Amino acid sequence: MSVITQGNSTSHDRGWWLYLALHWSGIFASSLLMSWGLFALFFLVIGGFSLDGAMLHIDNFASRYVAADADRVMRFKVVLAGVQLASIAAILFFRRGAWIPRDPKLEGLARG
């Protein structure tokens, strides 16, 4: 992390902040994709690890969603949002080692 000193104040280099923002957007995007993969894995598991079984369960799920009234659809959306947030939180917890980006300057020193 490079620091630029200007008078009495210290501010981080703008490039470092952009690097951090890019790193965090990558962490969140990949975690979101992993959570969607967990939903696909869930349907594969309840479908007996076959594509036909998974599609039958998805079809059953979709037909019940379409036939539901507005209150039940809202409850479904709340449950789905809660499961999505919980899965993303669990994935981010297990990826906590990747939260802080590596500093290439410090890695060169560590290798000797």
Rank of each mutant, 00 (worst) to 15 (best):
D69R: 03
K77P: 00
G26A: 05
L33F: 13
A86W: 07
G47K: 09
L44Q: 08
A40R: 09
L20G: 01
Q84M: 07
F49C: 13
F43T: 02
L51K: 14
A68V: 00
R72V: 15
Q84Y: 14
F43M: 00
S63M: 11
A68H: 04
F61S: 07
S25T: 15
F93T: 04
F43D: 00
A40D: 14
L80K: 01
R72S: 15
V79P: 05
G53A: 08
M34A: 14
I58M: 11
A21T: 10
F39D: 09
A21W: 06
Y65D: 03
I27P: 03
S87A: 09
S50W: 00
R72H: 06
M34W: 08
M74V: 11
G47V: 02
F42Q: 05
L32N: 12
S35H: 00
V79T: 14
D52Y: 14
L38W: 09
L92D: 05
L80S: 07
F28K: 10
M55K: 12
R64N: 04
K77A: 13
S63I: 08
L38F: 12
S25V: 10
G48Y: 02
S31T: 07
L32H: 10
R95F: 13
V73S: 02
A70M: 11
I91F: 07
G53D: 00
K77H: 15
V66F: 14
A54E: 00
D71A: 07
V78E: 10
I46G: 04
F49E: 05
S63N: 09
L51I: 14
L44Y: 10
V79Y: 07
V45K: 13
I46V: 12
R64H: 06
F42W: 11
A29D: 02
L44F: 14
S87Q: 01
A89Y: 05
